[in-house]
């Protein structure tokens, strides 16, 4: 049996064996390592349903989704709506239904809206991670593909909980590009620092764009390569201190890293207008208004954060 792509095709309509809810399949949304996610409609409400061949893997995701929903801080990921079995080709299959998050993958969003959004999004992401960490889990497989920017309120949400790991255990799932061990910066034990490392690498990757990133990927990897990129990038250079601290596991919590990034971001937002004159040639306008929106969002984010913490 293969490890992926074995998700059986869903029938157009199906009904859960235990809770008897009926679902109407609209289309496929994407494939993760543990299964496939479909957009469905249940009594006229749109939901996302994840089905996988290995029931245990699906149920472990349910486990995590359940435990992070015990508080009010449910904004980490989608809300869990239903867990049940369906029968496909005579074989029982476990699935779960969750809130459908409409939005865009983080990397596509940045590509469209501009790299000045990167720090804003990373700061938001760190707030989400902090909640997860305080529940005793790390996200593990942190990458742009697993982060969604919601269409309506531009908030960051985590999707695909297949890599989520209990603190102290071995990371369940990872992607080499963002993996601490692959950059020779530590092992794969689930620690808060593991997620923060991935978040920092992601910040670099999203800022420099695909081409530049690819060209840095040849040869043996070490965090020195990342430092080179940071040194050469005007947008990353101001963030060098928090980034380096994340590479070297110096932050105890996501909250700490968030605060440091935020401090740089605020400073930058204030001094950007004067600097603009010297760097104007490179960029085609729009930066200031973008940054203004960004800072507003940040303010909102901080308020939200302060409210719930």
């Amino acid at each position: 049996m293969s490890s992926k792509a074995v998700t059986p095709d869903l029938p157009k309509h199906f009904q859960g064996k235990w809770n008897r809810r009926s679902y109407h399949v609209l289309r496929e949304l994407g494939r993760g390592a543990n299964g496939t996610v479909y957009l469905v409609s249940q009594d006229g409400v749109r939901r996302a349903v994840k089905v996988g061949a290995e029931g245990m893997d699906i149920l472990m995701e349910v486990n995590v989704l359940k435990s992070i929903q015990q508080g009010r801080d449910s904004k980490v990921g989608p809300l869990l709506c239903d867990v049940d079995d369906l029968v496909v080709n005579g074989k029982p299959c476990t699935f779960y239904a969750m809130e459908y998050l409409e939005g865009e993958q983080l990397d596509r969003y940045i590509q469209k809206e501009g790299e000045e959004w990167v720090p804003v999004m990373i700061v938001q992401l760190l707030a989400r991670l902090d909640v997860l960490h305080r529940h005793g889990y790390i996200f593990g497989d942190l990458k742009p593909e697993n982060i969604m920017v919601s269409r309506t309120d531009k908030t960051v949400r985590l999707i695909d909980f297949g890599g989520v790991t209990k603190l102290g255990n071995a990371v369940r799932q990872f992607t080499e590009e963002y993996d601490r061990a692959f950059w020779h910066a530590g092992d794969r034990r689930a620690e808060i620092g593991y997620d923060l490392f991935s978040a920092a690498v992601m910040m670099v990757r999203l800022t420099v764009g695909k081409e530049r990133w690819k060209s840095s990927q040849s040869g043996p990897r070490h965090t020195g390569l990342l430092c080179d990129i940071i040194r050469k990038s005007d947008s990353l250079y101001p963030y060098r201190v928090p980034l380096l601290k994340a590479f070297h596991g110096k932050f105890a919590t996501a909250q700490e890293m968030r605060a440091e990034l935020l401090a740089v971001l605020r400073e930058r937002t204030v001094e950007k207008p004067q600097k603009k004159a010297s760097a104007a040639a490179g960029k085609a306008g729009g930066g200031i208004s973008g940054l203004f929106v960004a800072s507003l969002l940040l303010l909102a984010g901080t308020l939200y954060y302060a409210w719930f913490m």
Partner: peptide, 17 residues
């Protein structure tokens, strides 16, 4: 396991993990 209700099975999954 297949005959257990999903709620119970979630607990089994945690144990297996």
């Amino acid at each position: 396991i297949e005959e257990l209700a999903p709620d119970k099975r979630v607990q089994v999954a945690g144990m297996v993990d």
